[in-house]
Design a protein around this nucleic acid. Structure first.
Lengths: 319, 319
DNA sequence: GCTGTAATATCAAAAAATCAGAAGGCCTCG
DNA sequence: CGAGGCCTTCTGATTTTTTGATATTACAGC
C-alpha cells in the first residue's frame, strides 16, 4: 500500500513531540488514529521508525533518517501548494548578465522556473563581472542584470534588491558562546573557522574581518554549505553564514544555533540592475515581475507596458 | 483541505498521458475518480492546472510548474520509502580526508546521512589535495579518504570506486548533431560550449581536449549544473556532462538530448582510499559500509571486525 | 446541419479508509 | 501494589473515495 501525506504528517508530529498522545492533541484527532497511521507507515516502509517505551516514542536511527526525508517531502508539498504563477505569455529574447557567484548559487532555480513560466522567453545569459555589467547595461548589450546590488557604483544604473540576508554566527549547540552576553569577532577569531567560499563570501568576509583587528582562524575552506553545516554541527568549528542558507528545521543530532554578532556584519543583497535610460519591454517586465513575486515584493501595475517603472520615470522622463 | 499524494499521483498520470481517461486506465481506476481528484486538487491549490478540451487535458503554465514540483515530491517520497539504513551503533572518531571538489559536490549529502545513521560517529573532515591525502593515509594522519579514484598513484594506497559516471555530450533537442551518424570533439569545437567548473571538470576537460587537436569554444563557465542545463536546453550551447547530474524526468520546454562522443571521454570515478597496511576499525567499516550500500555495491560480511577487507588480506597479511 | 465519437463533468450509491471511544496491557514511580 | 501515563487493539460510526451510469461538450465526417 502506498504511503500518504497524512501518515507523514502524523509521523512528524509524533517524532517532534515524542508522544503519540501529545501528537494527537496537536493534530486535534484521537490518539488511536495516530497509532494506526504510524503502525501502517512502519509496515509499508518496512522499517521500525520508533522505539516504544512507557515514556513515549523515541526515534530509531531509521526513524531519524525517515524524519529528515519527511521534512523534505512536506517542504516540497508546501512549495507546490503555494505557487504564485506569473501570468502572461511573453515572447522574445532577453539578454541577462550576471556575476559568477549569482549564476552559481542564486540563479539556477530561478532560471528553471522562468523557463517554465515563460516558455516563449529566450533568456540569453552572460557571465561577466560587475564592471562589465555596468558598462554593458549602458551600452545596451545587456537588457538587465542580476548581481550583488550593494556593489553597484554607476549612478546611471538603477537597481532593485530582491533578497537581503543577514549574516550570523553559527555554532554547535552547547557551545560556550551561547552563554556569553555578547560575542564579537575577537571571540570568533579564537575559534576554528569554517569558511564558505561561495557568493563572494570569502571576499566579503575579508572586508569585514579587516575592519576589525582580527582574522579568522580558518580550519577549512569549502564551497559546500552542507559541509559547513555538518562540520559546525559536529563541533569542528564555527562559521558566519547568511540566512539564505537557512533551513526551516533542525534535526536531532544536527544541533546548530545562531548568534548575532556584536559587530555589524554586512548583509548579502542580491537583486536586479538596469540602465536608468532603458525602456522596459515585455520580456524585461516579465523577468522583473517574476522576481518581485518570487521574493514577495509588492507587485506594481503592469497595465501600460512597455513602460519604465514609476520610480525611474522621475529621473528619466524619456520612458 | 490539505492535498494528498493520491491527488498528486493522479495529477502526474494525467499530465503525462494528456487524458484523464487514459490516466484512469493506467491507474486502474475509474475515470470519474481521477476527474474528482484533479478538480479537488485544483480547488485546494487554487490554480487551474489543466486546459480542458475535447481532445484531453493540456497543462497550463501553472500546471507545468506544479508538475515539476509534483515530480520532486514523488521523488522524495520514493527516496523516503526506500531507505536502506546501515545498522549498528558505531562510536568513535574518524579522520576523513577529501579533495576540494569531492567535499563540494559529492560528500555533503552523504555526510549528513552518515551523521544521522551513526550519531555516535565523530567525523573529522579535512580538505587536502590528492598528494597530501596519499601521504596522510600512509602516515596514519587520516583514516580514510574520499577522492577521484582514477587519480590515485601510490601503490601502497588501496582504493575502491563507489561511483563511476560517464560523460556525454548534451545538446538541445532538434540540434543538427542528433542527425549525424557520429559526433566528435572536432564537431563540438565548432559549437558554443558551456563549461561546468566543478569536480575538476574543467581540468579533466582540458586533458581530453588536449589529446585531441581541438579546443572548446567556451561561451560561459559556470559552477551551476542547473545553469548549464538551462542554457543547453535553450540552445545557447552544448556541454559535456557526467551522468551524475542526470535527472530522471525531462519536462516539456526543457528539451535535452545526450550523444555519446566518438572519442572516448574519461568517466568520473569517485571512491574511497586507504593505506593498504591500515587495520579497519569499526568506524572505518561503518564509513565504508555506508558507501557500499549507498551505491549498491554488494555488502561483505562484517562479522570479524576490526579486520582488513578480504582483498587486502592477499597483499598484506598483517590485518 | 446532422450524427457518431471521444473526451470531461456530474451524481447517487457502494466501497474503502479513517476516526473516535472504550478496553486492555505494559511500564514507572511513589 | 496501586495510580497514572502511555501505546495498542477492537468496534462501530463517519468521512472520503470510487464506481457506474448519465449528462455535456467539442469536433470531424457525411
Amino acid at each position: 500500500m502506498p504511503i500518504s501525506l497524512r501518515q507523514i504528517r502524523y509521523f512528524v508530529a509524533t517524532a517532534e513531540l515524542g508522544q503519540i498522545s501529545q501528537a494527537a492533541v496537536e493534530l486535534s484527532i484521537s490518539q488511536s488514529a495516530v497509532t494506526t497511521a504510524i503502525r501502517e507507515l512502519e509496515r509499508t516502509v518496512n522499517l521500525q521508525l520508533f522505539e516504544r517505551s512507557s515514556s513515549g516514542m523515541g526515534l530509531t536511527p531509521a526513524g531519524r533518517e525517515f524524519l529528515f526525508h519527511a521534512y523534505e517531502i512536506l517542504q516540497k508539498v508546501h512549495e507546490a501548494t503555494h505557487l504564485t504563477i506569473p501570468s502572461g505569455n511573453v515572447e522574445g529574447r532577453l539578454v541577462v548578465a550576471a556575476t559568477y557567484t549569482v549564476i552559481g548559487y542564486f540563479l539556477p532555480d530561478h532560471l528553471q522556473r522562468l523557463q517554465r513560466a515563460f516558455p516563449g522567453l529566450d533568456i540569453q545569459l552572460h557571465e561577466v563581472n560587475r564592471e562589465a555589467i555596468e558598462e554593458g547595461l549602458l551600452d545596451e548589450r545587456y537588457d538587465i542584470a542580476v548581481l550583488l546590488t550593494s556593489n553597484v557604483r554607476d549612478p546611471q544604473i538603477a537597481s532593485e534588491t530582491m533578497m537581503s540576508s543577514t549574516r550570523r554566527l553559527w555554532v554547535p549547540s552547547r557551545h560556550p558562546f551561547l552563554k556569553k552576553a555578547r560575542v564579537g569577532l575577537a571571540d570568533v577569531a579564537r575559534e576554528p573557522y569554517i569558511m564558505l567560499t561561495v557568493d563572494e563570501a570569502a571576499n566579503t568576509s575579508l572586508s569585514y574581518w579587516s575592519t576589525s583587528h582580527y582574522s579568522p582562524n580558518v580550519k577549512l575552506r569549502t564551497s559546500s554549505v552542507e559541509a559547513v553545516r555538518s562540520m559546525v554541527a559536529s563541533g569542528q568549528g564555527v562559521a558566519i553564514l547568511s540566512d539564505m542558507v537557512y533551513r526551516p528545521w533542525s534535526l536531532e543530532g544536527q544541533r546548530l544555533e545562531t548568534i548575532v554578532l556584536q559587530e555589524p556584519v554586512p548583509a548579502m543583497n542580491v537583486g536586479l540592475a538596469w540602465a536608468r535610460h532603458a525602456r522596459f519591454n515585455k520580456a524585461m517586465e516579465a523577468f522583473r515581475a517574476y522576481f518581485r513575486q518570487a521574493f514577495h515584493i509588492p507587485q506594481m501595475r503592469t497595465d501600460t507596458s512597455p513602460s519604465a517603472p514609476p520610480h525611474l520615470a522621475k529621473t528619466d522622463g524619456a520612458g
